[in-house]
């Protein structure tokens, strides 16, 4: 990649990488100062943080009040504050999918959403999908299909699969493969996982369980 004209980037070690470049841009973010336009009377939104701020998270149907710094992610709030450790912290940068939870009906990377920003929408974690003492069809299909080895990626896969099936109740194998592309399994149990998702789809549609 070509070197930028941004003077900040000159401080970077040679061989400019994407990562190095962002560092220059990020740190130069405060370099430009313009005066605030005067006479804007509307009350500005509250400045929250950098210290802890009270927030309310609606997790698995129950509101939880807690105090977190704005920089705390939804994943860390769930794991460290609410003791919901199903969502796993693995890559911690929105790549592996082990932290997947369902926020406002959509699968999201909990590691890449701020807890303060997750207020006001229902949050569902793997702890909250089983009803009446019975495993959710996705979870039971994972058991039936032996869709795991070490199991560390499983909660993320189960949540991603549930959100995927809520949108695509009758997927093909190829659609399952693409749909779950945001989750990685280092044991390589993808074949079993895809079969489990197909089995769960069939069961959730009311069809007979796969033999």
């Amino acid at each position: 990649m070509k070197r930028s004209k941004d003077p900040e980037s000159q401080a970077q070690p040679k061989g400019l990488s994407r990562r190095g470049f962002i560092r220059g841009v990020g740190l130069s973010g405060g370099a430009v100062g313009l005066l605030h336009p005067e006479g804007e009377a509307a009350p500005a939104p509250a400045v929250l943080g950098p210290g802890p701020v009270p927030i309310t998270l609606l997790v698995n149907g129950k509101p939880h009040k807690l105090e977190v710094e704005p920089r705390v992610t939804l994943l860390d709030a769930l794991r460290d504050r609410l003791d919901l450790t199903g969502a796993k912290r693995v890559c911690d940068r929105g790549t592996c999918g082990a932290c997947t939870v369902i926020l406002g009906g959509k699968a999201v990377y909990a590691c890449s959403v701020l807890a303060i920003d997750a207020q006001g929408k229902p949050i569902q974690t793997v702890e909250g999908i089983n009803a009446g003492g019975r495993l959710h069809p996705v979870a039971s299909a994972f058991v039936n299909q032996d869709a795991l080895q070490c199991g560390f990626c499983t909660p993320g896969f189960v949540m991603a699969a549930k959100a995927f099936l809520d949108r695509n109740p009758n997927p093909t194998l190829e659609q399952v493969r693409k749909g779950l592309g945001g989750n990685l399994c280092r044991c390589g149990t993808y074949v079993g996982i895809r079969q489990a998702v197909l089995e769960a789809a069939k069961q959730m549609r009311g069809g007979a369980r796969n033999v």
Partner: peptide, 9 residues
């Protein structure tokens, strides 16, 4: 963990 910041919405 990110560096501390203030947040406005």
């Amino acid at each position: 963990i990110p560096q501390n910041f203030t947040y406005q919405a």
